[in-house]
Design a protein around this nucleic acid. Structure first.
Length: 586
RNA sequence: GCGCCCGUAGCUCAGCCGGAUAGAGCACUUGAUUCCUAAUCAAGGGGUCGCAGGUUCGAGUCCUGCCGGGCGCACCA
């Protein structure tokens, strides 16, 4: 149950009742009426803005509406106190029993707690990673990868029908560079000395060595000295396949799996770009024009004004119209990307999310414009930009040099700290804020390490259950049996605070999903862990609030129910993150 | 020059599609500390939410203009 949604409905129905009684106008629009947790805890458990929102419509003072509303709310079983505050907020304090029932909800729902159906089965396409197949993934890719993967899980969790997609950019000039780089490695594998300068402008990384060797085995010296035209296409194809295998391995090591891989090259070969182009042309959204060089910046050396095919993206919120064809007549990346998004729309996706690196920010408007144009305004594209990851080790920046081909790959990091740590840490910041990733700190057992902090809460509960099992058979502690525990014994303020936190989970999940902001779950889990650890620490000073009370099996059962619910929610959250909850930490 | 993102406590950051006296951790100050696991705990000080306007019952949040930082700016992807 989303408590605040429930209370919103309660408030709305009481408003209707007041209208029905003739004390307020009929047919008030209550869509803006909200019930939220107050920022200030002393204001109670929930607050509604109903009186403020409806005052204008009802043509009376907010306070008058609040006066009518509050006795009705107070009359309800779950409400124990109502007060009117500030300009007309109605603050509610809910009965302990209401919260204890919410704890029971958690236990009964178990792993399903927090799932909802706000997505109503709608199809959503989440495109993420989409790294160029020219080498292994680096740490920066890792952030977008985890972000997209977890966002996809989150949307699935709230009832969307999610497709996880990877766009393989295997059609551009860089793939030719890759093919040539591999050819160099191929010649090397055949025993040729290749001078280092040959790798200027090529991909120098060692990861291409085995690819060259494999091609030497496959072809012998057949292409060693032959002209590029004879081998380039085939080498590119094999190189891309090899790179995609690397990337798939990297993804697998991170626990990431896509439903669909779409090849740009295949898209072009099937003529889908021509189709998309023709469709836009038919709508008179393409014309031949000459672009001005950007102002305030010296134009590129090879700038020449020339007529080219332009998409009228300015008609859809972009700043300038964008070219679709290069001077050699081939499609621009934008053109193929239009076709790709048209393809997604034709597959039934009206909701699309693309996860990109922040360096592609300048591209957002034109893509959004294209999606609007090609779908007749039906489809929505939300582009999530992920900022840089600053890799540190013990507070010192880790040097990465792409030029030399020496850079820390995502795989290096996953192998060093584990996939669970990488996944969690990548979500400890908002996607559009830069993220520090300290290889040392993230594996320390300290409060500074959010992964540990959350995992430790889970492990601590597991430990309590191991201790409890020494006295009572573990079978007594199934969630179903714990749901029948006397939860009304849980009256300590810290216990009720913990329950309130648990009860907030469904709301947090929904809000995070709607905002496309999975990082909110990480902050929630941290807060939940903090509430739990607080309660634990109380037990140090006040033995009476410890979870296991030797001579009181009933309170023990109730408290085990409470902390069991903590593991349910932590496990649910970590489950969305694709992180395994820890049973013990030693 | 234009566009996008960011600007919140000394530091790192939250702030839930406008809500009440803006929060947390670190650091700092003070006190406690033979503990169900082994991150010690509790309390306290600390703010012109970059600046200036505007929108309204109400703005860190929305709009406009500046300032500062990052990214991008035909024919790369």
């Amino acid at each position: 149950m989303n408590v605040f949604k429930y209370l919103r409905d309660v408030v709305a129905s009481e408003i209707e009742a007041i209208s029905a009684a003739g004390d307020l106008p009929a047919d008030l629009d209550t869509s803006n009426v909200n019930v939220e947790p107050p920022r200030e805890v002393s204001h109670g458990d929930a607050a509604t803005n109903a009186a403020l929102v409806l005052a204008k419509q009802a043509r009376c003072k907010p306070r008058d509406i609040a006066e009518m509303l509050s006795p009705r709310l107070l009359a309800r079983d779950e409400v124990v106190a109502v007060d009117i505050a500030g300009p007309g907020f109605v603050n509610l304090r809910l009965a302990d029993g209401f919260w204890q029932d919410r704890l029971r909800d958690v236990l009964v729902a178990g792993a399903d707690y927090g799932i909802s159906n706000i997505g109503e089965g709608r199809a959503v396409n989440v495109e993420y990673v989409s790294a160029n197949p020219t080498g292994p993934l680096h740490v920066g890719h890792g952030r977008g990868t985890v972000f997209g993967d977890v966002l996809a899980s989150l949307l699935t969790h709230v009832g969307y029908n999610v497709t996880r997609e990877y766009y393989i950019n295997d059609a551009g000039a860089q793939v030719d560079v890759l093919g040539r780089s591999v050819h160099l490695r191929y010649r090397e594998a055949l025993g040729e000395e290749i001078p280092a300068e040959a790798y200027e402008g090529a991909y120098p990384g060692d990861y291409l060595v085995p690819v060259g060797q494999a091609l030497a085995t496959k072809h012998g010296d057949k292409f060693q000295a032959s002209p590029e035209g004879e081998w380039l296409a085939s080498f590119c194809g094999d190189a891309v396949d090899a790179m995609m295998n690397y990337i798939r391995d990297d993804l697998a090591a991170l626990g990431v799996r896509h439903d669909v891989f779409t090849s740009e090259r295949a898209l072009v070969e099937r003529g889908q770009v021509d189709t998309a182009f023709a469709a836009l042309e038919a709508d008179e959204l393409i014309y031949t024009g000459v672009l001005e060089p950007p102002k305030g910046k010296p134009p590129p050396d090879d700038w020449e004004p020339r007529p080219q095919s332009l998409f009228r993206s300015t008609g859809f919120g972009d700043d300038v119209d964008r070219p679709l064809k290069k001077s050699d007549g081939s499609w621009t990346y934008f053109a193929t990307d239009i076709a790709y998004h048209a393809d997604k729309v034709s597959r039934g996706f009206l909701d699309m999310i693309d996860v990109w690196g922040a360096d592609h920010g300048g591209y957002v408007k034109r893509m959004g414009a294209a999606v609007k144009a090609l779908s007749g305004g039906e489809a929505a594209l939300d582009v999530k930009l992920c900022q840089l990851v600053k890799l540190l080790d013990g507070g010192e920046p880790v040097r990465m040099s792409k030029r030399s081909g020496q850079f820390v790959t995502l795989r290096d990091v996953v192998d060093r700290v584990g996939k669970d740590v990488v996944r969690f840490i990548m979500l400890t910041r908002k996607n559009d804020a830069a993220l520090d990733f300290d290889l040392t700190q993230v594996t320390e057992q300290s409060r500074d390490n959010p992964v540990f902090y959350v995992q430790y809460a889970h492990a601590r509960v597991c430990s309590v259950f191991r201790n409890a099992a020494a006295e009572v058979p573990a079978a007594a502690f199934t969630p179903a049996k714990l749901a029948a525990a006397p939860l009304d014994r849980l009256t300590h303020p810290a216990e009720l605070d913990l329950i309130r936190r648990l009860a907030a989970w469904p709301r947090v999940v929904e809000a995070a999903a709607l905002a496309h902001e999975p990082h909110r779950l990480a902050f929630y889990l941290h807060d939940l862990a903090a509430d739990f650890h607080l309660l634990w620490n109380k037990g140090k000073e006040e033995p009476a609030v410890r979870f296991i009370v030797a001579d009181d099996t009933e309170i023990t059962r109730a408290r085990l129910a409470l902390i069991s619910a903590v593991t349910v929610v932590i496990a649910a959250g970590l489950g969305i993150f694709g992180v395994e909850p820890a049973k013990e930490m030693r």
